[in-house]
Design a protein around this nucleic acid. Structure first.
Lengths: 201, 201
DNA sequence: CGAGATCATAGACAGAGTGTCCAGAAACAG
DNA sequence: CTGTTTCTGGACACTCTGTCTATGATCTCG
């Protein structure tokens, strides 16, 4: 029994992952065939099927790798009493995304019929909801909105901006600037953002 | 030459649209074959190909129908000096979505490798950006953030909540309540939403 | 280093789905 | 009613899938 994964397997799986991601970005998920993938990864066709059930399984593998990796890094950064009011968790996601931009692009664009996107959104908003709830409880305040809506809105905001930032052609605002905008926007709302309060506040 | 579309064509196209949407929601875009679609629509296989180039073309047809329809309705509601600060445009989108929830679910879930989702997001955030820009200009204020980021964030927020609302099992907040939450959240930010301001404002 | 386990490979295969074509039947407009 | 348009089932070549086999290559560990 092998304790550590064989070097060959490691290389094969890595090559398949990379090939899938770059081919999907190039042609779209549906247009990528298993034959394309094994050709790009320089791997035998049968070998593919010893590692993954099908194209979908490889895709899911990529998505869950990213999600697990992100979760680990967020756990280090997310202080329980913080509740996302500071930019650290947001910045960490942006940092993580810029380390593997292609995988993030693939997921956030909804390739793979949105399965990755939904997994991402669900996991992230669940975390957000928990943190908001804990925060509200700890401070004994009464939230004015449904915290589920709040969590979904917060995550949706960040995902859309993250994809826009990853996909936008230069020039685009620097990461730090975008993250700061997101955080302040979320804290202070659009009145502050546009510099104008129609109600005169 | 036919001035008006043949009744048969009308019925055929409608049946194909409906069949695609419900089958995609049931099994996922990739798992739906043209044969499934024509069977569900009770239409001959060859007939499909006289109306649409392939499955993708039918999907795109559905998406652009929804987008065009929405655009028409938003144009009636979007006052140029409003800039989305009231709930009317948001409410209109939610109203539109609840009239054809299945098509919206399909699009917002990212089915079809996210092509519909991206079209939706791009169109909507372009509109939002224009409106923000006009508003800021009209009031001669200096925005504190990149208005592109603001537009993307605003739209992402609404899309995520809309999908959550369409997909959530009962019980869920009523439409009006969700829309109001979204608008107030966007106007006042998360401090207001959670009832707690860590900076003591 | 060498034996035994593990992994990779090419090519062949049936099955499913695609997109095109045809000739005939059905529904349409005026 | 007449000529036109649209629908239909079945046949076709094609692409991709997922499985299998026999063989060769590469690893691990004593």
């Amino acid at each position: 029994m092998t304790v550590v994964e064989d070097r060959r397997s490691r290389r094969t799986r890595g090559a398949l992952r990379d090939a899938l991601v770059s081919l999907v970005l190039e042609r779209g998920y549906a247009a990528v065939t298993v034959e394309d993938i094994v050709a790009a990864a320089d791997v035998g066709r049968a070998t593919f099927y010893t590692h993954f059930k099908d194209k979908e399984a490889l895709y899911d593998h990529v998505v869950s790798s990213v999600l697990q990796d992100l979760k680990g890094r967020l756990d280090e950064v997310l202080a329980p009493e913080d509740a996302g009011f500071t930019g650290e968790p947001v910045a960490e996601v942006f940092r993580h995304a810029s380390e593997q931009p292609d995988a993030y692009r693939m997921i956030l664009r909804g390739e793979g019929d949105g399965r990755g996107l939904r997994a991402f959104e669900d996991a992230w908003s669940a975390t957000a909801f928990e943190t908001f709830t804990a925060r509200v409880k700890a401070n004994a305040v009464r939230p004015r909105v449904d915290l589920q809506v709040l969590a979904r809105a917060w995550v949706g905001e960040q995902m859309a901006v993250l994809l826009w930032w990853l996909d936008a052609p230069e020039p685009r605002p620097a990461t730090d600037q975008v993250v700061e905008t997101l955080v302040e926007l979320s804290r202070r709302g659009r009145f502050w953002a546009t510099g104008f309060d129609p109600d005169g506040r």
